[in-house]
Design a protein around this nucleic acid. Structure first.
Lengths: 351, 351
DNA sequence: CTGTTAGCGCGTTCAA
DNA sequence: TTGAACGCGCTAACAG
């Protein structure tokens, strides 16, 4: 291994092959090699072959930093997600990476753990790393973050939402409408005492929109969400269990629980089994996202299917288009779908 | 927006602030600004303050490509995982990213979907992108991939395994031992007809080791794994359901099923409910990884807890050490833990 | 402790 | 269609 004077690991530089080496070895100029790499159509086939041969023989690998510096494009796209440790964003992440890698782009990621401060610092780091484009989740963040991005002048897109006040490009679905749809479904079955379990609302516009959607649906029927029927918990099964237990002790006891994130619903179902509360006999429960477990769990979960992978893929496509100069419209909101399964039913008959 | 002659998106360059601008504005030389960024201890506080002020006033953001080119280090670490869409690798990914970001490193990721060819091409791309270090999962891959990495001369580490034939540095647990431990647990309870559900074995040394571990445990008791008691399926719940159904029709019918990946076990449990087969009364089922559902599902799942996040975090720490010149040993294998829950019990009494 | 000087490896003019 | 020359923005010697 090679270390410099301070002991830091350093490429020995042995056998470091540059574009010049390739050029010399192929008997052409560096410019020609560069063209073979970037605009092969401008090079005569005979030369191209010789260059290709030299590249392979020398096992030449372009130097990304040098390319980026000279061309002002790094071929990297950044993404900052609330979490990487979840099937939720995992699908979108994978779809995004798959999409951009087809054009030779590389994905740089960071996770915020739902902290705006951490998001800010990651965005700054990524911008400094030289990313050509950026994907963020949701719209709610300090304006300075948007300023940094716009100052850099790179295209970006917000996912998981369908519109913003500031007219930022976004690719996602209507969270408000989805919350509304679930609540309407319950109302239509006769529920009048509906509760909601939400993730932390601060700095999370998706969670806020879903809650607002539920409230809108209730208001349509002249109902409202009592303060003690809204439980805010950190995302996860544990929060769902707790919330379920709490809600079952409320007066009046809710006959339906809308979960703003699917693990809450799983937690509610598990806790109901522990408590001996029948779902949907005594209380209905709905989820949000339609993760793989929703269809398998007993009772199977009524939920909203959200276009997770699609958001990742379309965000990738959108940014690739922008990067190649197409002034593509960010498009209509993506569809969500109410999936009615066994966990929701009519409320129990009074008394 | 700004486009160049070919229509490709391009930074307008308006207001692009360079280190030189900062230097001029602060009345110092570029070198001093550079030192403030990289080795602040070498700069007199008075100057440091002036430079800092200029940086903030101009909203200067360093240019990663230029830094990387001049310093030969990109401050990026690459990771190639089989999948990003799973809690399995998600935890490790997040831990890895969190760890390296504390030192200002950025994480570049790619997913292979368990394809060796795709892994090769991603590794090549990442190497060309200029990553300073690399994380890969498992050891089994064409030698040329290792050659590319070694040619680049960057540190790397293999995770999810505890040793390799080729003496590559790795951070993980003993898959063979874990498979063996689960099988022994079942054997100790009296099972003699044990089956296994495995993910695709080709190009997956973790899966192979687990299977080998199970075989070793069986051999210790003079038993073996009949060919029709080994079911290979793509990872996922669906595979587990199928495998369970198949195995229940085998003669002799197995009294215990070792699942090499946890979703198989969930699938088996769901299918058992659909088929009316009692777990563990008629057949025991074990998982692998101890994901969050394992403790919640009914019956709760006997499984092996694997150090997923720890592998990500330790891989990050290991690489950071290497990058800062410490010749750290990759260390002992990490611990796994057999977690016995309700899904395993003694075999049913014969006839 | 600070400034001066040379590149890092490549893309991209421009002229041939 | 190809080559020569320049510079992208920064770090790392070296000298002071």
């Amino acid at each position: 291994m090679a270390f410099d004077s301070e002991g830091a690991f350093r490429d020995p530089g042995y056998a470091r092959v540059t574009l010049e080496d390739v050029a010399r070895s192929a008997g052409v100029s560096p410019a020609t090699v560069s063209r073979c790499l970037n605009t092969p159509s401008l090079v005569r086939p005979a030369l191209k072959a010789k260059v290709q041969e030299a590249i392979e023989r020398l096992e030449y690998l372009p130097n990304g930093a040098a390319r980026a510096l000279a061309s002002q494009r790094s071929r990297m796209i950044g993404a900052v997600f609330p979490s990487l440790d979840s099937t939720l964003f995992g699908g979108a992440l994978e779809a995004l990476q798959g999409e951009i890698s087809t054009e030779g782009y590389t994905l740089v990621v960071a996770a915020t753990s739902y902290s705006a401060a951490r998001e800010r610092s990651h965005v700054q780091n990524l911008l400094a790393s030289g990313i050509d484009a950026l994907v963020l989740v949701g719209a709610e963040r300090p304006p300075e973050v948007y300023r940094m991005i716009e100052r850099k002048g790179i295209p970006y897109v917000l996912i998981w939402i369908d519109r913003t006040e500031g007219a930022h490009p976004c690719i996602g679905f209507d969270n408000h409408g989805a919350g509304q749809a679930v609540a309407r479904h319950l109302l239509d079955m006769g529920h009048r005492h509906i509760a909601m379990v939400s993730g932390p609302l601060a700095e999370n516009d998706r969670a806020k929109s879903r809650l607002a959607g539920v409230r809108t649906a209730l208001a349509e029927r002249g109902l409202s969400l009592p303060a003690d029927h809204l439980i805010e918990r950190p995302f996860g099964v544990a929060g769902g269990r707790e919330a379920f237990r709490l809600l079952m002790s409320r007066q009046p006891r809710p006959t339906a629980i809308v979960c703003g994130s699917e693990p809450f619903a799983y937690g509610a179902i598990f806790e109901s089994q522990a408590m001996g509360v029948a779902i949907p006999g005594e209380v209905s429960v709905t989820g949000f996202d339609d993760m793989w477990l929703a269809a398998q769990i007993t009772p199977s979960l009524t939920t909203v299917r959200t276009p997770q992978r699609q958001m990742g893929a379309e965000a990738g496509r959108y940014l690739l288009s922008r990067l190649s100069g197409k002034e593509i419209a960010a498009g209509r909101p993506l569809d969500f779908e109410l999936v009615v399964r066994a966990s929701s039913g009519p409320p129990p008959r009074e008394g």
